[in-house]
Computed example of a mutant assay.
Amino acid sequence: MKWLDLITGGYASFIVYAVAAAVIAAVLGYTYHAGASNKDAEWTLKYNQREVAIAEAYSAEVSRQAQANALAKALEAKRLAELEAENVALELKIKELSDEADADPDRDRVCLSDGSRLRIDSIH
């Protein structure tokens, strides 16, 4: 160490401490970087898992909505068929009552006949 003092002009201990501090800083830096890389990989994995879960949830919701829409359309078609059948039956009933009213011998009377009253009551 004396020879280093002679070469450096008395700064040998300072240089030794500086080199030791640099080595310690390098070890700490490497340790920090290794830990940060590990954390980065861990957070990347968590992010990717979250993205996969979001994509699955989105897909499930789209599928659920498609099923709900298909069911609603099927119920709508069934109800429209029922309404159409009711409409046809009502039109037949109206035609039948109209034919009966046309065939009624008392259709030209001022007041309602018994047949007219029964036809009107059958509509209710």
Rank of each mutant, 00 (worst) to 15 (best):
F14E: 12
L80V: 04
D102H: 05
S113R: 13
D121P: 01
K2I: 08
I7E: 12
Y30P: 00
D5V: 03
A41I: 04
Y17K: 13
A74T: 07
N48R: 05
E96V: 05
A103S: 13
I120M: 09
V52E: 01
Y58P: 03
E91K: 12
R119M: 08
P105W: 11
V23H: 14
S59E: 15
K78F: 00
L75P: 05
L6M: 14
W3N: 13
A74Y: 03
Q49I: 01
T44G: 01
A77Y: 02
E61A: 15
R79Y: 02
N48V: 03
E86I: 02
A72R: 06
A72Y: 01
I24T: 14
Y58N: 14
P105C: 08
L118A: 11
I123L: 13
A12S: 09
I120K: 06
V23Y: 10
L80D: 06
E76N: 15
A68L: 14
R109P: 04
L83H: 06
T44I: 00
Y47Q: 01
V62A: 15
N87E: 04
L90M: 14
S37P: 02
A25G: 11
A36L: 07
D108I: 05
M1H: 07
L45E: 06
L71H: 04
A20G: 14
N69S: 04
Q65M: 07
S98F: 15
D108E: 11
E51M: 00
V19Q: 05
M1V: 07
E61C: 12
S98I: 10
Q65N: 08
Y58Q: 15
E84I: 02
K39W: 08
E51V: 00
E91H: 13
A53T: 04
R50F: 00
K95T: 05
L112A: 11
L83I: 06
V23F: 14
N69R: 03
H33N: 11
L80K: 15
I7S: 07
L112C: 09
D106S: 06
S122N: 05
N87V: 01
V110R: 14
P105D: 10
Y11A: 09
R107S: 06
R79C: 01
I120T: 08
V16N: 08
D106P: 00
Y30S: 02
Y32W: 12
S113G: 11
H33S: 09
A20L: 15
I94P: 02
K73W: 12
H124L: 02
L4R: 04
K2C: 01
A12Y: 04
H33K: 13
A72L: 07
M1A: 14
A101W: 12
S59L: 06
E56W: 09
K46I: 03
A18P: 07
E61P: 03
A53S: 07
A26W: 15
W43F: 09
E100R: 10
L90D: 03
A101C: 01
C111G: 12
F14V: 11
Y32P: 00
D5I: 05
A101Y: 10
V16P: 01
